[in-house]
Simulated scan of single mutants.
Amino acid sequence: MSMATYIGLNFSVKLNEYYTEDEVEIDYVFSDEENRNVVKQKHFTTPYIYEVSEKGNPIWQMNEYQKIHSPHNYEKSKKTFLYLCHLLKELLLQGDYCEVYICWLGEEDEEREGELKINLNNLQIDAIDIYEKYFIRIEN
């Protein structure tokens, strides 16, 4: 089973045709159209649904538990999340937002276990805890 990090945007993006060494990419990774439609209907308000391909540590490991029990992995996940924030800062127009939902493939219709609201212009990285089944609204 695979963990999927879905991202919803208010605009379409061109998907990479070739593999890159970028820490994070917006693409289709594990999900199929049916998985993405469930996330769109149950969790998102945005019309375009993709996945975040994390080549570093997954962002859902950037939380208090990992900070205590695996600080090295926490720092790697934090680096991946900061890269994603940098990418979103370039993609999102001022006042726009995106939505992120993280869950195991096939569990898209299950209830959320938490919600976060993050402002890219006031990023308080050390106060952010991300777990699976978390809905995250990221605003620019």
Rank of each mutant, 00 (worst) to 15 (best):
E25G: 10
I7F: 07
Y28W: 10
L9K: 03
Y101V: 02
F30M: 05
D22F: 02
I68E: 13
M1G: 05
E99L: 02
Y83W: 08
C85H: 06
L84K: 04
D32Q: 07
K76V: 03
V24K: 01
L105M: 13
R137E: 13
G106I: 00
E139N: 10
G56N: 12
T46L: 09
I128G: 00
L116T: 06
Y18V: 10
L93C: 05
G95W: 05
Q124D: 14
I102Q: 13
E110N: 15
V38L: 12
N16T: 09
F30V: 01
F11W: 00
I138W: 03
E132W: 02
E99W: 10
W60F: 13
E108M: 02
I7H: 09
L82C: 11
L88K: 03
L88W: 02
W60C: 09
S12Q: 15
Y19S: 14
G8T: 05
I125S: 03
Y48N: 14
Y18D: 11
Y6E: 06
E110Q: 15
E54M: 11
D109I: 04
I136S: 05
K76M: 14
E75S: 08
E54P: 07
D32W: 03
C103M: 05
T5Q: 10
E21T: 11
V38E: 06
A4K: 11
D126Q: 13
K14H: 06
I49F: 02
E51W: 09
T20Q: 00
N63S: 01
K133C: 05
I102N: 10
S53M: 15
L120E: 08
R137Y: 04
K40R: 14
V52F: 01
D109N: 14
I59T: 05
K14D: 14
N37V: 04
E21F: 13
N63Q: 09
M3K: 11
G8D: 03
R112L: 14
S2G: 09
E99T: 01
K55G: 09
D109R: 01
Y48G: 05
F81I: 06
Q94I: 15
N119F: 03
L116Y: 00
Q61L: 14
E54F: 06
I128D: 03
N35P: 06
G95M: 06
K79D: 12
N63D: 08
Y28C: 00
W104R: 11
S2D: 12
L82G: 01
P71V: 05
W104K: 10
N73W: 07
G114D: 11
I26Q: 08
E75G: 00
Y19M: 07
I128M: 00
W60H: 14
E111Y: 08
I49Q: 06
D27E: 12
S70R: 13
D109V: 04
D129R: 06
G106E: 05
Y131G: 09
Q41C: 08
N16V: 00
L15W: 07
K67F: 10
E75N: 11
L87T: 04
L92V: 00
Q66W: 12
L116C: 02
E115Y: 07
S2E: 10
N119L: 11
L93W: 07
E33K: 15
N122R: 12
